[in-house]
Amino acid sequence: LVERTMSRQTLSLMQLVYGKSTVNSTDVKKENDSSEGEESEDEFFKPKEEVEKQKRREGLDCGIVNSEDCSKTAKFADLKCWKDKDFEHIRDRFVTGDWSK
């Protein structure tokens, strides 16, 4: 059972990054390429609803098409306030921590 969950996790991470069904990667890639080519055929005007629909079909990726190009992710807003418990938790990541573990 552990093994199975492990493999599922692996798959899901790969899926998260590279999209669905990463099992036979070469086929998928080809498919992706061709469909992209069709979509980007020069259509100058497009009703907005259609665009929205298409975006929804594309799923996850649509939101970030024009997202900001920024490597830094740390934001102060969602920073938790560190309590004593958290310090104990991280202590072993320092040379001053308990080495026996």
Binding site: S71, K72, T73, A74, F76, L79, K80, C81, W82, D86, H89, I90, R93
Partner: peptide, 19 residues
Amino acid sequence: FSLLEEIEQGGVVDSTHQG
């Protein structure tokens, strides 16, 4: 705090340098 959070993550680089 944000440095501690990066340390807690436990990678060989911080999240900024992953790319």
